[in-house]
């Protein structure tokens, strides 16, 4: 009944009716307090935005006071001490570890030239009292994150033979220029994934082992599939570790043999790799 006659309507009438609707609505809007309504919508969106937490930098300690202002620039920069000389646990343990006080003393006992500087005096006072130095954690992962230095160090430094400072720098920035340690990466999950999702071809177990290159997508064999066309992919800049755009990955993936592709499809995020 309602639409019975509409079927017989001419083209003209239809367009007019449409116009009618549009105009009618706009007209209505104009007459009413439209800005008022839009304001309401904007306010709602704003509130919603405020609710979404911005926690990435919540644990930033770069402004906090460390017990001793340890100059990384001097140790790692000027004297070019290997990172792993002090952070000796990095290759053996989940945590990189702060060097034991005895390690600091071990060298500084033989460096009388700086013995009377206030920082060193403070160091020795800790040593004499046999007290640990209460450092403030700079890179504090959330407790529910499983992260192991060992795997990363073993892979990139010992297996790939990359320079230590470059590998450490991937996450910790160019430490040799720092005076006091600070966080240069957000260390959020998305940031982790920016590297890891390029390995997503095979899951945890079939962890891809691209032979010589880092960041070569999904090659479960030792064949470095991408080498020819994208020689630059593996170049790393410690300050700007590059993540490959999705489009490139797609292009690369298309070149993969079917047997490899078959594996790519079941490659979900496996949350339990890092969160338990």
């Amino acid at each position: 009944m309602l639409f019975k006659k509409n079927r017989q309507r001419g083209p003209m009438a239809e367009s007019v009716a449409e116009w009618d609707m549009k105009k009618g609505f706009l007209h209505m809007c104009q007459r009413a307090g439209t800005p008022w309504l839009f304001g309401l919508v904007a306010l709602t969106l704003l509130l919603a935005g405020a609710v979404l937490p911005v926690t990435a930098w919540a644990d930033d300690v770069s402004t906090a006071q460390q017990p001793i202002e340890f100059p990384h620039s001097r140790h790692a920069g000027k004297y070019k001490i290997n990172c792993m000389y002090c952070h000796t646990f990095a290759r053996r343990s989940k945590v990189a570890g702060i060097p034991p006080v005895s390690k600091c003393i071990g060298c500084h006992l033989h460096l009388p030239s700086v013995r009377n500087k206030p920082r060193i005096k403070k160091l020795f006072s800790y040593w004499e009292q046999k007290k640990p130095i209460p450092w403030l954690k700079v890179h504090d992962m959330p407790d529910f994150v499983y992260f192991t230095h060992k795997r990363h160090i073993q892979r990139f430094i010992f297996q790939d033979g990359r320079p230590t400072q470059q590998v450490c720098g991937m996450c910790h920035g160019d430490v040799k220029t720092f005076s006091v340690g600070r966080k240069v990466r957000a260390m959020t999950m998305g940031w982790c994934l920016s590297c890891h999702k390029q390995f997503q071809g095979v899951s945890d177990i079939g962890h891809p082992k691209p032979a010589k290159r880092w960041m070569i997508p999904v090659a479960p064999t030792d064949q470095a599939v991408m080498d020819v066309d994208f020689p630059q992919l593996a170049v790393m800049d410690p300050e700007h570790p590059k993540s490959i755009p999705n489009s490139v990955i797609e292009k690369l993936n298309r070149r993969l043999p079917d047997s490899v592709k078959a594996k790519i499809v079941h490659a979900p995020h496996d949350c339990w790799k890092c969160h338990f």
């Binding site: 926690t55 646990f89 343990s93 570890g97 800790y126 130095i133 529910f144």
Partner: peptide, 27 residues
């Protein structure tokens, strides 16, 4: 205590003073 929510606080990390050789934190 490993919490499941994000913690917004500053955590201290205390190094050993003079540990045994085989003591590796985290292991």
């Amino acid at each position: 205590i490993n919490e499941v929510d994000l913690e917004v606080r500053k955590e201290h990390v205390l190094p050993n003073v003079d540990p045994q050789d085989f003591v590796v934190p985290g292991n």
